[in-house]
């Protein structure tokens, strides 16, 4: 089984090599003449007056966590879809119950207006 993943390993190694190689060559060969103006932070010509780390609205968090929960649901669907022919009715209904429980959550989410972006 593991031999199937050898091309991926080689791909990762080549990717790292290309990334590190181009950056490293630029670092080694490029001219560097820093001065104070070059190294100072700038913001479209005027002085930087704010921290770059803005506070986010908590609504983004809600969207992200709802995405993760349904993402996990999809992860459970993959093996089920592959072996459904071999397992038959029992596995079918176990997944129906699984999805039914999550549909309860989905209806709650919809009715509460968590998907609205007001």
């Amino acid at each position: 089984m593991l031999e199937n993943y050898l091309p991926i390993l080689i791909f990762i190694l080549v990717g790292i090599l290309v990334g590190v190689g181009s950056l490293g060559l630029g670092y080694l060969l490029g001219p560097r003449r820093p001065d104070q103006e070059k190294d100072s932070p700038y913001e479209c010509g005027f002085e930087a007056f704010e921290n770059a780390r803005l506070k986010f609205d908590v609504r983004y968090y809600l969207v992200a966590i709802l995405f993760i929960l349904f993402d996990l649901e999809i992860a459970f669907l993959f093996p089920w879809a592959v072996v459904l022919d071999d397992l038959g009715v029992f596995a079918f209904w176990s997944m129906v119950i699984f999805l039914g429980i999550l549909v309860v959550g989905f209806i709650y989410e919809w009715k509460k207006g968590a998907l609205e972006w007001e």
């Binding site: 968090y61 809600l62 966590i65 709802l66 929960l69 996990l72 649901e73 459970f76 176990s94 119950i97 699984f98 999805l99 429980i101 999550l102 309860v104 959550g105 989905f106 709650y108 989410e109 509460k112 968590a114």
Partner: peptide, 15 residues
């Protein structure tokens, strides 16, 4: 199925 219940709790708690 317990995993589904935990996910449901997660949805409701987040909302």
């Amino acid at each position: 199925e317990l995993a589904a219940v935990i996910l449901l709790v997660g949805i409701i708690a987040a909302i």
